[in-house]
Design a protein around this nucleic acid. Structure first.
Lengths: 343, 343
DNA sequence: CTGAAAGCGCTTACAG
DNA sequence: CTGAAAGCGCTTACAG
C-alpha cells in the first residue's frame, strides 16, 4: 500500500488522533460550533447539532482534556491521596468520592502516599502539575514545603480523617485522641482494668493510643501495655502480638487494636489459646470493615462513616470549583463504637 | 491594601499560577532555557542553570503538565482500571505498578470500573480524553464501542488477569478456566467427591467455576453444588452459603470459594457448626490475601503474583511509550495452589 | 445562532 | 550553549 500524500506538510505522526478540526471539517462547520454542540448543545441549531453529532460518531472523536484544561483552567480532575489502597479502611470514602464527583462531572484520580511519607512532596508536585480542581488528603499534611506548594497553587484542598488547628484550606475534622479516650472509657466501663494497646506505627493510630493512655491515666488505671508494629497492620501481627503478651503478662483483660484486621488476628490467637472473649479478654478493633460483624465472636469496633466523608469532600470541592465558598470550611466527622460480642 | 497595577492588561485572575515565563523573567533568560534547565540540565551552562534553579525555588514553580502534555503528546500518565479498590486482590498489582511506573517517570491514575461494567464506556472516554501514555485493564474489555475507542486512540493497552484470543493490544494472560480445573483436580486428589462452588457473579470467577465444573465432569464426579452471590464477595456471604448448604445437603465435603474473604467466612461457619476442616470439609480460597496464612486453620488458596503482573505491565507500557515494541505482546501469568491446612 | 482571532503554557524544530 | 518562532487542541471573548 502506498502512503497517501497528506494536506498538512507536518502530518507525519503515525497515530495523530482525531481533533475538533477534523470533526468540524467533516461536519462543514467551524470548530466553535463543534465545541458548542458538545458542551452547550442548546446553543446550536438542531440541524448543525445533528451534523456535528454524526461527525463525532463517525470519527470516534474523544475531546482532548489536556487542551481543554489548559485553555479553560479547569481540569475536571480531583485527586485523592490515601496511605494505601490495600486494607479497605478508606475504600468507602473512595467509592463515595468517585460517585459524588462523577455526578458533578469530575473524575477522581487516586494516589497512594504510603504510610512512610518520604515521597510526599514529590508526589504532591506531580499532582499539582496536573492542576486538579481539588485535592483530598487523607490526614493532615505536615511538610512545610508541601503546604506551601498547595497554598500557592490555589487548588482547593480538603484534609480529612484527622484534625488540626491550622488546616491548609478545608477540613473534615476527626479527633483520634477522642476516639482513643472513648475506647478506653468503654473498656473501663466493661470492668476491664489491665489494658493493652496493639498499634500500627502511623500518625493517626499513634494519636488514638495517646488519647487512650491519657484516659487510662485519668481513670487511675495501670499504664496499658503497648506493642507497636508496622502499618498497615495484619491478621498475623494481631496473633503474634497476643501470643507475645500472653507469654509474658497474662493478666491483660482488654485490648484495643489499631485495625479490624489485627483485631481479628487477636481473636484467632485467643481462640487458639483457649482465652475466652470477651469474659477473660475484651477486644476492640478500628474501622468496622465488612467482616467485623461476621467473624466469631463478632467484633466490637470503632466506626467512621467514610461514605459521608467522601460525599462531603466532593461537595466542598465542587462548590469551590464553581467559585462559591463551601457551606463550611471545617466540618466535624462523627465516630461511634459499634458494640458487638468481642467487648 | 491596594491592588498593584499589573503589566498584563488581562491579568485579572485571582490566582494565576506561576509559569515558565515568570521564572524566565526572574532568572533573566528565555523560556527555553528554563525548560532545558528543568528537563535536560546538562544542556545548560552551570551559571544559567543556577539562576534558573534559584528562580524556580523562589517562585515555587510547578510545571503545568497539561501544557507539557499537549505540546509533547506525552502525558506521563498511565491509567489502571480495577473492578474495585476495596478487597485487596489487586492491591499488589497496583502497588507494583505505581512503583515501577514512578521509577520510569510516569504517574499512575487508578480508576474503579465496578463489577457492573455499565459505566465502562463513559469511564473509558474520560480516560482517553486525558491521553494517558498507557492503560492497564483488569480483565478483558468486551464492549465493541470501548474496544474501538481504545484501538483508534493509539494508546498502548495491557489487558491483564484474564485471557482472550483477541487482545486489544498487549496481554498478560491468565486462564481462569485452568485455575478452576486445577482446583477441582486438587480436591479430587484429596479424596473429596461431593463438591460445592461458592462464587461471586463476576466474569472471571464464573470462568473459574466453569473450568471446575468441566473437570468435575471429566473426573466422573457428581455435578458440584453451585451458589452464586454478588461481587465483591464477603465473609458474611461465606458463612451464609455454608449454612444454607449444610441445612440442605450435608454431604458436601469440599468447597471452592471465589475469594479468600468468603472462604474465611466458610471456615468461621464450619467451626460454629462443629464441621471439621479439612477432614469433613475441605475449603479452598482464591487470592492468597495476607490473612490467608494466618487464619486458623490456615487457608489453602490460589495464588497469583499481582506484583509480577504490575511490574510486567509497567515494562510493556514504558517500552511502547519510548517507541520500542515490548519484548512480547502476550505473556503468560503463572498461578499456584498454596497448600495449607484447610484442604 | 455562528465564526475568526487570540491565547492557555508549554516543547518542537530550527537557527545561530 | 541559547533563543525566537510556531504550534499542540482546545475555549474565551468578541463581533456579526
Amino acid at each position: 500500500m502506498k502512503e497517501e500524500s497528506s494536506e498538512h506538510p507536518a502530518a507525519e505522526r503515525v497515530h495523530a488522533s482525531v481533533t475538533l478540526r477534523d470533526v468540524a471539517r467533516l461536519a462543514g462547520v467551524s470548530s466553535m460550533t463543534v465545541s458548542r454542540a458538545i458542551h452547550a448543545p442548546d446553543r446550536v441549531s438542531a440541524p448543525l447539532r445533528q451534523r456535528v453529532d454524526d461527525a463525532v460518531r463517525a470519527l470516534g472523536y474523544v475531546p482532548n482534556l489536556m487542551a481543554n484544561g489548559l485553555r479553560s483552567s479547569r481540569s475536571y480532575l480531583v485527586t485523592a491521596l490515601v496511605p494505601t489502597i490495600a486494607g479497605s479502611l478508606f475504600s468507602d470514602m473512595v467509592r463515595s468520592l468517585t460517585e459524588a464527583l462523577e455526578a458533578r462531572g469530575f473524575q477522581l484520580m487516586v494516589g497512594q502516599i504510603g504510610y512512610g511519607r518520604s515521597r510526599e512532596d514529590d508526589l504532591l508536585r506531580a499532582i499539582i502539575g496536573r492542576r486538579p480542581d481539588g485535592i483530598v488528603l487523607t490526614g493532615i499534611l505536615h511538610s512545610e514545603e508541601g503546604r506551601g506548594m498547595l497554598i500557592s497553587s490555589g487548588i482547593p484542598v480538603v484534609e480529612t480523617w484527622d484534625t488540626t488547628p491550622h488546616p491548609i484550606d478545608m477540613l473534615l475534622s476527626l479527633s483520634h485522641e477522642a476516639i482513643g479516650r472513648r475506647v478506653c472509657e468503654f473498656l473501663h466501663g466493661r470492668g476491664k482494668r489491665r489494658l493493652a494497646l496493639f498499634s500500627g506505627k502511623d500518625e493517626r493510630a499513634e494519636r488514638r493510643m495517646r488519647g487512650f493512655l491519657r484516659a487510662a491515666s485519668d481513670l487511675g488505671l495501670d499504664a496499658p501495655l503497648l506493642r507497636w508494629m508496622d502499618s498497615p497492620t495484619t491478621h498475623r501481627q494481631g496473633r503474634e502480638a497476643l501470643a507475645a503478651v500472653f507469654e509474658g503478662d497474662a493478666r491483660v483483660d482488654g485490648v484495643f487494636c489499631s485495625s479490624d484486621m489485627m483485631a481479628t488476628g487477636v481473636l484467632t490467637e485467643a481462640r487458639a489459646r483457649g482465652i475466652a472473649v470477651p469474659d477473660r479478654l475484651a477486644v476492640v478493633g478500628f474501622g468496622d470493615l465488612d467482616f467485623a460483624e461476621s467473624v466469631a465472636p463478632a467484633l466490637t469496633t470503632v466506626r467512621i462513616d467514610g461514605g459521608a466523608i467522601g460525599a462531603m469532600a466532593a461537595r466542598m470541592i465542587a462548590a469551590r470549583a464553581d467559585g462559591q465558598s463551601p457551606p463550611q470550611r471545617i466540618v466535624e466527622v462523627e465516630f461511634s463504637i459499634v458494640e458487638r460480642e468481642s467487648a
